[in-house]
Amino acid sequence: MVFIEYEAKDTMVHRLNPLSKLIWFSSLVFLLTLYLEPQPLLIIFLLELFIGYLAKVPWRKLMARAWWAFILSIFGGYTFSLWVNKPSQFWHIPPELGCKVLLELTPPETPLLGYTAITYGGLLWGTAITLKVFLGVIAASILTYTIPLSDVVYLWSKVLPYRLSFICVTGIRFYPVMMEKVREIIIAAKSRGWEIRSKNPITRAKEAFPIVLPSAREAMLLAERMALAIEARAFGVKKPTSLRKFTFNSADVFFIIFNVSITVALTCMWWYYGFGKL
């Protein structure tokens, strides 16, 4: 999912080899899978904000496009945290601390829901999940903002067939374009008095149907026109020339070392000290 597209800028992060940035992203994803507790995630969050600052990420634009993902993560994270209230769910935090009830919502006998409560451990878990989504969105945005499409295609084509990597990357890149068209279609529908009123998910899906037809049509049109344009420009005929010379300079080396070493440090802390475990 692309929230902000590549912009050719002359920042330290833009100048890095795309492989260095991919290593950074991979180590981040690895760390995100480890942690269930907010402390290490906050450290990673600050580091990521720093990288974003170096890359001169347009934060306002990102927030304008990704606000819904953040809201969803807050809502989802804290909702599911209501069920994080059993001692068996805590490995590192003392269970009596983790299960410390701040506000009980439903008693254990409640049908379907069972026992739900706002607990200290639940709040930590919910915060961790929310932070993970924030981190993922920001990291992916930094990546798409600082790596041009052709570089991504070039890298992916090292492991996948060129055609497939181009199509996948183009699909990702066209997400904001498509979203813009869908937004336009929704506005057009609203201008005709359309709105989703029902709270029933099945009825909501039915009510959303008028948007589906023109959106699907736009997607197909976009794909068709693009296919014609790229075919006319010899796409897939030969192995394409890479316009950029990919080199590793000292900045890349230090960046990779930084990422690897911070990953080792944080992983050790997780493994040996339970740092970030719930």
């Binding site: 300079n249 900045a251 070392i257 911070i262 440090a265 493994w271």
Partner: peptide, 24 residues
Amino acid sequence: PSLITLISTIVAATSCILFLIKGR
């Protein structure tokens, strides 16, 4: 474990500073 973590952190801090210098 504490030595590995300590050394990794020192290496990370140093390489971060060097990256900031070289990256300019």
